[in-house]
Amino acid sequence: MPHVYMISDHHFGHKNIIDFESRPFGDVGEMTESMIDKWNAVVGKEDSVFHLGDFSFLNMEKTSAIMARLNGYKTLIMGNHDRGRSKRWWLEAGFDEVSEHPIVYGGFFFLSHEPMYMNKHMPYVNIHGHIHGQKYEGNQYVNVSVEHWDYTPVLFEDIKKLVVPSEEQ
Rank of each mutant, 00 (worst) to 15 (best):
Q169G: 07
V154H: 07
S145V: 09
D158C: 14
K62A: 11
D54P: 05
V164R: 11
I7G: 01
S112Q: 08
L111T: 04
T63A: 02
F109P: 04
S22P: 06
V98I: 10
D9Q: 02
N71Y: 03
V104Q: 07
A41D: 13
W149A: 00
E114V: 06
G129N: 01
M116Y: 04
V154M: 06
M116T: 06
F50L: 06
R69K: 14
L70W: 06
Y105P: 02
G72R: 06
W39N: 08
L76R: 01
V144I: 04
E30I: 08
F50K: 02
T63F: 04
M31A: 14
S166M: 12
E97G: 05
Q169W: 11
E30D: 11
I18H: 06
V154F: 12
E30H: 13
R83Q: 06
I18N: 06
L70M: 13
N16C: 12
D150G: 07
E168D: 10
G29L: 14
K87W: 00
I17H: 00
K160A: 13
D82N: 03
N16T: 15
A93R: 02
E168L: 15
N139C: 13
F12Y: 08
G53R: 00
S99V: 10
L111Q: 04
E114C: 02
I66K: 00
H51C: 08
S112C: 05
M118Y: 08
E21K: 04
Y117W: 08
P102W: 12
M60E: 08
I7F: 01
N59P: 02
E147F: 01
P24G: 07
Y5W: 15
H11I: 09
F25Y: 11
D158Q: 15
I103V: 11
S112Y: 05
G13R: 03
M35I: 13
I7M: 12
S166C: 11
S48W: 03
G79F: 00
H132K: 08
F110G: 02
N80T: 02
D96N: 10
N126I: 03
L91G: 09
H121P: 12
R85Q: 12
G84F: 08
H101D: 10
Y105E: 05
M122V: 15
H101A: 14
I131M: 10
Y73F: 13
V42R: 09
K161V: 11
G79I: 01
T75R: 00
